[in-house]
Amino acid sequence: MTTPLDVTGSAAEAQPEAVLSGMGEAIQGRSLGQIAWMRFKRDKVAVAGGIVVICLMLLAVLSKPIEWVFNLDPNAFHQNLIDPILLRPKGALGGISWDHPLGVEPQFGRDLLARIVEGAWVSLAVAFGATILSVAIGTVMGVIAGYYGGWIDTVISRLMDIFLAFPLLLFAIALSASLQGGAFGLHGLTLHISVLIFVIGFFNWPYMGRIIRGQTLSLREREFIDAARSLGARGPYILFKEMLPNLVAPIIVYSTLLIPTNILFEAGLSFLGVGIQPPQASWGGMLSQAVGLYQADPEFMIVPGLAIFITVLAFNLLGDGLRDALDPRSN
């Protein structure tokens, strides 16, 4: 005869649900995006970099309304603020006043704040456009090379080597100089921005392509890829539906690190006189104009230099934070 069940125990022993009901809210699962966001928020330096990047993007997008609201004219001359003998801003502060918070440039007297605001959208437009172009080409070529392998991988890899060995600076100088008048129905500022985006973006895609190729070589041996093949999925479906979603993290991280590189390259071309042409303001162009005038007014070189420095630093800090937050091996 079996022993009857003991029904005299506590309610917690008889009903496990009672124990769970006293433990508060149920444990909720967190997605990979939520985990990455929690990691990113803990990195205060990266958050600060992200805030600066957002402010710079808003400044670039809203540069024209800002100029209109605050009556900023980047090409307005203020000769009354320039000493006619020394050809430098009057006063000891480089022309700084309530009307000109950052002062004015030597010789012409144009407002530095207005030119910094105007140059923000030019520099960031070139950097973002070139980054989008290089990321798009590099991602497609890297995924194809890493997934198919064989002779396709060999051809694309050798093509990357050719592009990496190409004298990009000399080509950019020659192309920009030869297209000063107009080409492809474009003229003036639109032509210069388009040429810079093409030159910087098209010849920098191998950097992204190599990273994506290495990631793809690892992903193609994973179980979910084998499962997709066993279900009859073909190459294009696996590339764009299975692999690309798993490559979003490295693409985002490297893009944030590629943008400051493109900003510096655009500034360098403008500094050499083959980028954005005056009177259009750009940060690199302002530095180029300040080379012969920094002794008269050092602030004319410091202001655009700080703008480039802060922008590049903010993007690099944001990229480092995103890399740590999206890395599944990080704590």
Rank of each mutant, 00 (worst) to 15 (best):
I137Y: 08
W121S: 12
P206D: 08
N316D: 07
A174C: 09
D6V: 08
S282Y: 10
A165S: 15
L269G: 00
G235E: 10
S178H: 06
S270W: 02
T190I: 05
L272P: 00
Q277S: 10
I82K: 03
S330M: 15
V117L: 15
Y147W: 10
A267D: 02
G146D: 04
R222Y: 08
L318D: 03
A120N: 03
P260C: 10
F309E: 01
R329K: 14
W283A: 03
P328V: 11
D320H: 04
G103C: 11
L62W: 03
L239A: 15
N204I: 12
L189T: 06
I82P: 03
R220L: 09
L247P: 11
A172Y: 01
D83Y: 05
K64W: 13
L169Y: 09
I173R: 01
A130L: 03
E118G: 11
K64S: 10
Q34D: 11
P101Q: 05
L219A: 09
I54Q: 03
Q79F: 14
S255E: 04
V117P: 04
L58P: 06
A227E: 06
P4M: 10
L93E: 12
L59H: 01
F171Q: 00
L72F: 08
L164K: 09
G319Q: 02
G109F: 03
M208Q: 12
L326Y: 03
R222H: 10
G49H: 03
F108L: 14
D73L: 09
V199K: 09
F309T: 12
I308L: 14
V47R: 05
A183G: 09
